[in-house]
């Protein structure tokens, strides 16, 4: 490689054939470039007589934002084929940080398009990327890489796992776009749970996402999320879980209302296994003295006359459809 100083304006940044990273120049990098310029050379090569960027996208972004006109570069020979150039771009980054799933998918697609043998991609690169070395994983990653870059960025930022991606790709393209609008600003766990629940509901009912979202309990939180109100995420998740789990949510609601109706003193707390696998109650008492303990126990014993306790235990041990 040849070291040179290049004019930023000469770089053909439209040619993104070697681009597969999604991190953007952050404040610290911008600050550092403003102070001392770009010290570590970017890597370039020539295509159609113009320099194209191989590695150093964040540095170039920071340089442009800082108004730099020139920057140091290492130039790879023009006759190096795309695959060899990309291997360098890939491994240059590989040693420095781990990639998000979106970036992995973009990198794998480049390898595929630069005609690296699929068997080699599966057996050599997938394990390097901590993905299972199977054909179907490569297929999944290639399918992911075809998503709009806006969506890839969301997947990148929230560090999605393959299982969530697979669910997402199970929706028709128009529904994916709608889903992204709903979940864009949520945390990764919230995104995953919303997708999982919508996926299951969709398969169960055969309805489209928009049809599902018209249901009374879902329409409110969905419209709020579409307006950017992320606080509605919890409400949406509760509604989705209730729709997918009517038996347990119905029982839980009844149990909670019986517990409330018992009207126990604050220092006595009741708890139970929300999955109802164990049909038992857990009681805890708070007391700072023997007197307080006696009082708590007495009020508990007195409350046992209340029929509500029986109803509570019947609900916990309920068996039925």
């Amino acid at each position: 490689m040849v070291y040179k100083i290049i004019e930023l304006s000469d770089l053909n940044l439209e040619d993104r054939r070697f681009h597969f990273t999604l991190n953007q120049a952050d404040r610290r990098l911008l600050h550092s470039v403003k102070e001392i310029g770009v010290v570590q050379p970017v890597i370039i090569t020539c295509r159609q007589n113009r320099p194209v960027l191989v590695d150093g996208w964040r540095r170039v972004e920071a340089a442009r934002a800082s108004g730099l006109e020139e920057l140091p570069a290492l130039e790879m020979a023009e006759n190096t084929d795309d695959l060899a150039v990309f291997l360098l771009a890939f491994f240059e980054n590989y040693g420095q940080r781990s990639f998000s799933l979106a970036e992995k998918s973009m990198a794998l697609r480049k390898f595929y398009e630069f005609r690296l043998n699929p068997v080699e991609i599966i057996e050599r690169l997938l394990p390097l990327l901590e993905l299972s070395p199977e054909r179907r994983m490569l297929d999944l990653m290639l399918e992911l890489s075809f998503l709009d870059e806006r969506f890839l960025e969301i997947i990148h930022r929230r560090d999605w796992k393959p299982v969530t991606v697979e669910l997402l790709l199970g929706f028709p393209p128009a529904e994916r776009t709608w889903l992204f609008l709903v979940i864009e600003k949520l945390t990764h766990n919230q995104q995953r749970e919303v997708i999982e629940n919508f996926y299951s509901l969709r398969r169960k009912t055969g309805k489209s996402l928009e049809e599902l979202a018209e249901a009374d309990e879902l329409s409110g939180p969905v419209s709020r999320l579409l307006r950017g109100e992320i606080a509605a995420a919890d409400r949406l998740l509760v509604a989705l879980k209730e729709a997918n789990s009517p038996l347990l949510s119905g029982l839980q609601r009844k149990i909670e209302s019986e517990v409330k109706a018992l009207n126990l003193p604050e220092k006595i707390r009741l708890n139970y296994d929300r999955t109802l696998e164990k049909p038992t109650l857990h009681l805890s008492l708070e007391a700072g003295s023997v007197k307080e303990l006696k009082e708590a126990l007495q009020s508990l014993v007195m409350s046992l006359e209340n029929q509500k306790w029986n109803r509570l235990f019947r609900l916990l041990g309920y068996e039925g459809e």
Partner: peptide, 18 residues
Amino acid sequence: EHELTRSSDGKYRYPRPL
């Protein structure tokens, strides 16, 4: 797609009442 719950062994099952 049936209503399922994760039991303590990590497996999905029908809810215990069912």
